[in-house]
Design a protein around this nucleic acid. Structure first.
Lengths: 241, 241
DNA sequence: ATGATCAATATTGTCGACAATTTAGCGAGT
DNA sequence: ACTCGCTAAATTGTCGACAATATTGATCAT
C-alpha cells in the first residue's frame, strides 16, 4: 500500500524497515498468531539493536497486530471470528463513506481509470475463472481506487493502513473464499462505479455497504458450514476458550 | 477514557506514561499545533532517557497527533478545517454503526443507566443553561455509553482511543460551540435512546448519523460565519497556505 | 544587501550495557 | 505424583554514549 514514488526515495529508518518486515511476517503467518515475540531473538534475526525494534513493536501494537504487556512482553494477537466480523462491520460503514465521498469528489481521469480497471478484471475473471479477482493489491485493487477517490485523507489513512493490514491478516490466515462470489462481486463493482460516475452519493454508499455486507455474509456462511479446513481449526480454538 | 479499574493497578511503563502526558499536552495546546518536538528537551523536561521517549513518539505518530520525518524529527500536526470535517464524517458513520449495534446488543441495565444519564443531563442543562452539556467525558458521556453498548471491541477501540483524542484536540483548539445546540442535541439523544431501547437498528443508526451530521453542520456554519475568534485565526492560517 | 560555502553545534538514529522483573528448572517436602 | 520455594538464567525497560545527519551562524564573494 505504500506505493507513493516519493516515499521510495527516502531512506527508511531501521525501525520503519523492521516494522514493515514484522508486519508482513505476521500477516503471512511466518510469525504465528498468538505466539510470543522475543526481543533478543528478533534483534538477532534482523541484525539490529533492541532500540529500533522496540519502536517497531510500539507501532505494531498501535496497529492492533500485536499486544504488549509491561514487563511481560509482546505477542501476536489471537484471531477470532468475532473480531473478523467486527472488522467487516467497520469496513462496511467506512467503505460506504468512501464511496459516498468518491461520488462527490472523483475526477474524470479517475473514473476512466476505474473503468479500465474493471475491464481488466473482467478479462482476469474469464481467464482464471475468478481465481485472480481477490488477489490484486495496491493500485490494482478496486477498493483502493475508490478510497483514494474519496479525497478524505484521514479515511484513506484508516482504510489503507491499519484496517487494510488487519484485513489482510485475516484473509491470509483464514484463507478467505476467493472464487465463490467473483461474478456477483464484479457486477456489484460495476454498479458501484455507475453510481459514483452519476454522482449519486446515496446510492454509491448503499451499494458499497451491500457489497461489503455480502462478503461478510459469505464469510459467515462458510464459517458456519465448516467448508474451509483452515476455518475449522480456528472455529475449534474459539470454542475451547 | 482509560477508566478500567484493572488498568490502574498495573504499573505503567515510562513510555506509556510519557505517551499519555504528551498526548494531553498536545490536546490542551501546551505544546502548540505545528511546533517542533525536541527529543533532548522533552527527555530533560520529563527526566527520562530518549529511549522510552522515542517509543512514546512512535505511538503518538500512530495516533495521528504528530508527524515524524526520518533524520529531521517530530512535530505536532497542523490543524485544519478540512481535517476536522473529515474526522466528523468518519465519526458520523462509525457512531452510526455503534448505535446500530447497540440497538442489537444493549442490556437492560445499560438502558437503565442511559436513561439515568439523560435525566442527569436534563438537570445539568437547566442549571447551567446548556453550558455543561458537552463537558462530560468518559463514563458520563452519552456517546461513550452507546459505543460501549455496541459490544464491538474494535469499534470501541477506534472511537474511544484514536478518534476520541483527535476530536478532543480539535474541540480544545477550536473552542467548539458548546451551548448553541444543547436543547436540540438533548432531544436527539432522547430519540436515539428510544430507538435503541426499541431494538430498531436502522432508526438508531439514522438518528445517530443525523445527530453527528447536525453537529458537523453547526461547526461548519460557525467556521463560515467567523463568530468564533479561535476559528478565525485558523481560518486565516488555512488561507495563507 | 544577498547568496554561497564551510565549520561548529545540535539533533536524530542506533548501539551495547546495566538494572529490574519474569520465567524456567531443580530440589525438597508431603 | 504434585506443590512449593529458591536460584539461576532470560527477558524487558531504561540509560548513556557514539555515529550519522541536519541545522545554524559566521565569513567571503558578488
Amino acid at each position: 500500500m505504500e506505493k507513493s514514488p516519493e516515499k521510495n526515495l527516502v531512506q527508511l529508518s531501521l525501525s520503519e524497515e523492521i516494522f514493515q518486515k514484522l508486519r508482513e511476517a505476521i500477516i503471512v503467518g511466518e510469525i504465528p498468531s498468538g505466539s510470543k515475540l522475543s526481543e533478543p531473538a528478533l534483534a538477532k534475526r534482523y541484525g539490529i539493536s533492541r532500540g529500533p525494534l522496540r519502536e517497531a513493536l510500539s507501532r505494531l501494537e498501535a496497529c492492533s497486530l500485536i499486544e504488549r504487556h509491561p514487563n511481560i512482553g509482546a505477542s501476536v494477537v489471537e484471531l477470532s471470528q468475532q473480531r473478523l466480523i467486527e472488522i467487516y462491520h467497520i469496513r462496511e460503514v467506512l467503505e460506504g463513506l468512501a464511496a459516498r465521498q468518491a461520488a462527490y469528489s472523483i475526477t474524470q481521469p479517475e473514473i476512466t481509470g476505474l473503468r479500465g480497471l474493471l475491464e481488466q478484471h473482467k478479462v482476469d475473471i474469464r481467464q482464471d475463472n475468478g481465481h485472480a479477482y481477490f488477489q490484486k493489491e495496491g493500485d490494482f485493487d478496486f477498493h483502493f481506487r475508490i478510497i483514494q477517490a474519496s479525497k478524505n485523507d484521514h479515511l484513506i489513512s484508516l482504510l489503507c493502513n491499519d484496517l487494510y493490514y488487519l484485513h489482510r491478516l485475516y484473509r491470509y490466515q483464514f484463507g478467505m473464499p476467493s472464487s465463490s462470489r467473483s461474478n456477483a462481486a464484479f457486477k456489484e463493482h460495476e454498479n458501484i462505479v455507475d453510481a459514483i460516475e452519476n454522482r449519486d452519493v446515496e446510492l454509491a454508499e448503499i451499494l458499497m455497504r451491500r457489497h461489503i455486507k455480502a462478503s461478510r455474509l459469505n464469510v459467515v456462511k462458510q464459517l458456519n458450514s465448516g467448508i474451509n479446513d483452515k476455518i475449522i481449526s480456528y472455529t475449534k480454538k474459539a470454542t475451547d476458550k
